[in-house]
Design a protein around this nucleic acid. Sequence first.
RNA 1: GCGCCCAUAGCUCAAUUGGAUAGAGUAGCGGACUUCGAAUCCGUUGGUUGGGGGUUCGACUCCCUCUGGGCGCACCA
Length: 568
Amino acid sequence: MTDYKQKIAAAVSANVDMCSADVYECIEYPKNPEMGDYSFPCFRLSKTLRKAPALIAKDLCEKLGKVEGFSKIEAAGGFLNFYLDDALVAGEVIKEVLFKKSEYARSNIGGGGTVVLEYSSVNIAKPFHIGHLRSTMIGESLKRIHRFFGYNTFSINYLGDYGTQFGKLIVAINRWGDKAAIEQNPVPELLKLYVRFHEEAEKDDSLNDEARQTFVRLENKDQEVEAQWKFCVDASMIEFSRIYKKLGIDFDSYNGERFFSDYMQPVVDELRTMNLLETSEGAEIVNLDDVGLIPAIVQKRDGSSIYFTRDLASAHYRKKNYNFVKSIYVVGSTQALHFKQLFAVLAKMGRQWADECKHVQFGQISIVGGKLTTRGGNVIFLEDVLEAAREEISRIIEEKNPKLPNRETVEKQVGYGAVIFQELYTSREKDYVFEMEKVTNFQGETGPYVQYTHARCCSLLRKAEAQGLSPSGDFRAELLLDDASVAIVKLLRKFGDAVELALKSYEPHHVARYAVDLAKAFNRFYYENPIITDDRELSGARIALVGAVRTVLAEAMNLVCIDAPSEM
RNA sequence: GCGCCCAUAGCUCAAUUGGAUAGAGUAGCGGACUUCGAAUCCGUUGGUUGGGGGUUCGACUCCCUCUGGGCGCACCA
């Protein structure tokens, strides 16, 4: 596809004292379409040229005259606005989408470099609740977005499968557990036992000692305890796998903390050799005063390990085994200090790749009753949310399209998609309060809206096909000059930019919003224009446009992890 | 006490990372189905971007300060 920015940069730089690359960087998209498709702000030039920006724009406009590919160039205040030749662009863009299909707008800026993404990271023996959805979906979407740009990806579910709480859990199983009940309903039963442990430990502190000893046995790979640990992991994973399947996600690795506990020692040894370790209040720490952080604990007073050390080990393991160009941690903002410390220690160890590590943080999720507390029982299970949305979709399908083929599949695609989409529709960092009504309301800016639009495109394409008409690059673009068509074409051109913005800011919501914008533009076009008409040429042009919209919508939906059913 | 994050229309959120008249959805009101899917579309009401200073051609965006909320401050993860 023609790079029109390049054309502008070349033309402008020939007339002012700026190199083409600098001009290229300055070019922006006016938000109001009446101001053209590209804009070059002249304010910066006013210092060197000692002229008013508006005057510079005016002079430049005259000097440029006509530039190929643009129908009009206009000076407006200090801006020089460029208007694309709509018919030319429509022909070019639609042909490109139809030809490249799901490859459209992709590029290879990643060059095959590996990006490691850690996300979801659920805790064994604890429920998968609504609070885990953000990490899970942001991580998965970022994975797909990186692939879009030619990165290789490696996704890790860094399971919370280690630590003193497993000592507590195993003690509770031994004392009060009912094996059959646990096998029947693993996570809720284990959670009950965990809660009970804390209640009983209030009265009897010796339970805590017993738990600590049990964890030490686990660290020492005591076979009996290890078997119980494994039982908890396996039972929990059955439940988690079911949920990941509903979300359409799988991971390249489920190596959790337990796995990396075997890799800690060499790192600790190296810290010691490098004289980076200090003893403070009985613990082994890395002092981080020089970077304005509190010390990082590497070894506890009692000599046992801590999660910081395991994270340190896992970072090394990942660099060594996957040789990443980027390592992304999708973890809540409550861990911000932890990751600052982690990256700071890596830097102190002379790891240049420390700045290839990135903490992608997000705000806290709470529910109406306040904070999410698994132990306190103030929790909403993710699966309940997914199913509630699916049931609501089922009700709507019953009402609108009861004869829908593959109905059960579609209910899942749309219901689960609604939950996923609303999570990825807003920026990461704000806290938010989860409400069930939000995910069972499907009007307006929602996943089902985008899916509905896609299904509508598919329906049109089926109807056209029945008349021997299918999207083809052989159409007359000058028939697509009505406002709605032009607006769609402009959006189709910007797809790559939207995804790239998401990549650079680690914000999938840019893609989700793009999908809604495109759907909105299409629905307006649909309302204003009969697509399949007696006029064969006109129909051909419009069907080409519909085909292009369908393709890009489907790809955008894929990037934000929702399915694109062809009927709903 | 120190540090990080957040504050935009009644509500939920955007704003091309410093650009032009701050935009959507939702709620309210008024319209559009004998025609390709009304889970749709069109119109309309709604703003001192928490307050105050500063930086500059230009600030929701950057700096300072105050207010209000969230989180974190070594042996839990």
